[in-house]
Design a protein around this nucleic acid. Structure first.
Lengths: 318, 318
DNA sequence: CTGTTAGCGCATTCAG
DNA sequence: CTGAATGCGCTAACAG
């Protein structure tokens, strides 16, 4: 009887032993489809992210796993590959699986996949984008504020002619850019010509190419704000190639505080996000909601932290 | 009737239209559990990897996705987190899901999870480790040969006192190290003191720390072989901190040819693996096997490529 | 505590 | 081509 397997304590020891022996010798494996059909629930928690390559999400995933691992839900990842269509496809597929919950880093764009998420009939936690129209639960940082903080740091250092490397559609980049822009305008330093839009993804290589393109286009700049640490590292390499001293001749500020940023030469000034915590808390919110302790739609804003390091320096020390 | 959904062509247009309209207005979603139970199959392909953080697997995943995406299987990832126990847990869970197939980058160690893989009753492709005891299908490179190639390159450059940074248990590292060692012994340069075992994972940071520890322990070396490009980049940074010129005073060779390796300063000499192709072909083998074109256990050896770049140089040019 | 039973929502039959 | 019946393997609810 299946009671033995699901709740071994409520059957007599003899029966339990006998059943377990049979199970073992016959190599029985419970059919999850049947179980899920009969019990009208699954143990599936899905995490849908736009990229598996990103160190960024990787740490969020670690956080999620840390929270989930001793519950007996099973965690599955799916990749929306930066495409809202793929995201929608996955959401539709998910709908048929009676998931326990969904943690999603939405792809930004024209489509509105909220209806699809709603139809899942399970708690949904959106991570990273607290500024998005949240329809259930969300957790992340305020990217506009973070962008402003990074910008103010460069201004405080005395850099004035400040370039920007990144991508500006899509919510996170957009919001961050909003922060950059308002801060630069306040200081009277905003110049749209100094914006270099990413063509090749947020890679080290494209960081170098973008800085090269910017400098070739507008001449020297005091500093560059980069939308990711990969871009910033690429900018450092490009500066080295051009014989520009970082941070004296060009200040470089990244975003995310990736693993290498602390130990590069020079180490990168950047904004640290509590990525692990975001994942952990997202999973926690999900589990709580699943246990019925759901308090309705809510947004949790996490703190970020400016990490001033060797790739920027105050003008007094230059 | 469900015929309409699964095989729209064999029903009359009128019925089809009516059903589709209802489906749309009621927001009907087929129950995958019931479908899978009734039809005794699923559309699930699982990819089980030891790490989601790694750029290495990320590109393998891209290859897999490229092959799978226009079939209508659904792709799920699971993370064994470098743990054979977690791997076993996932395999057990999988067994109950009637998967179409499994692509797995095994965790090396004491346990033997082959029996669990066999019980899945679906084709299994092991990636990366062709030297493992393969029980079904496998695809990857010969890591021992690749390790030997990297070593020979350093010897050809004229480096003699060659350190090694990496981790040496676990199949890939072990096999690679076998290659290093045999090649160094052949040249009469093998010295176990020059081996620095990774404590902190294959990160940029630990690469720097390991080189520092090695140099502090044994004094100057001519070159270091690194088990990954992250370690190699860390070694480059550490060399810069110590004022050691790369490649003149110390040669550095990585492994994997990650994105940044081409554009770092100096660019990294490394071994390129056909990661995308490995993923693509693995998925292809799986689909073929699933379609019945299964030719029994087989191992596919892929080619790797030495990428000589700025972090190593021939002695004549030094 | 234990044996038995009735569906879960579909695909797959079999008649019509 | 279409409607109706059967059962996939399990859980939940029910009696014993």
């Amino acid at each position: 009887m299946s009671r033995t397997l699901r709740n071994p304590d409520i059957v007599s020891p003899e029966v339990r032993e006998k059943v377990l022996k049979c199970v073992d010798s016959l190599g029985y494996v419970p059919d999850l489809a049947a179980r899920s059909l009969a019990s009208r629930n699954s143990s599936l928690i899905t995490v849908l992210v736009p990229s598996m390559t990103s160190y960024l999400f990787a740490e969020v995933m670690h956080g999620i796993e840390a929270r989930i691992e001793d519950s007996d839900f099973s965690l599955h990842y799916a990749n929306s590959r930066m495409s809202q269509e793929a995201e929608a496809r996955h959401l539709k597929l998910l709908a048929g699986q009676r998931p326990v919950g969904l943690i999603i880093a939405n792809v930004a764009g024209e489509m509105d996949n909220r209806e699809l998420m709603r139809r899942l009939g399970c708690p949904v936690v959106q991570v990273q984008d607290i500024s998005l129209d949240v329809f259930d639960m969300a957790i992340g940082i305020d990217h506009a504020k973070a962008g402003a903080t990074a910008t103010r740091h460069l201004l405080d250092c005395g850099y004035r002619r400040i370039g920007v490397l990144g991508r500006f559609y899509g919510t996170r980049g957009e919001r961050r850019h909003y922060g950059y822009r308002s801060e630069l305008e306040r200081a009277g330093c905003y110049d749209p010509a100094l914006i270099e839009d990413a063509s090749g993804g947020f890679t080290v290589q494209s960081g170098g190419e973008m800085l090269a393109s910017l400098l070739n286009r507008v001449g020297p700049v005091d500093a560059v704000l980069c939308q990711s640490d990969e871009l910033a590292l690429g900018a450092v390499f490009e500066s080295q190639r051009r014989g520009l001293r970082v941070p004296e001749e060009i200040g470089i500020c990244g975003f995310n505080d990736l693993e290498f940023s602390r130990v590069s030469v020079p180490p990168l000034t950047t904004i640290r996000l509590p990525r692990f915590d975001i994942g952990y808390k997202a999973a926690d919110m999900l589990l709580r909601a699943h246990q019925g302790r759901y308090d309705g739609p809510m947004t949790t804003e996490m703190e970020y932290e400016l990490m001033p390091r060797g790739s920027t320096v105050k003008v007094a020390d230059r």
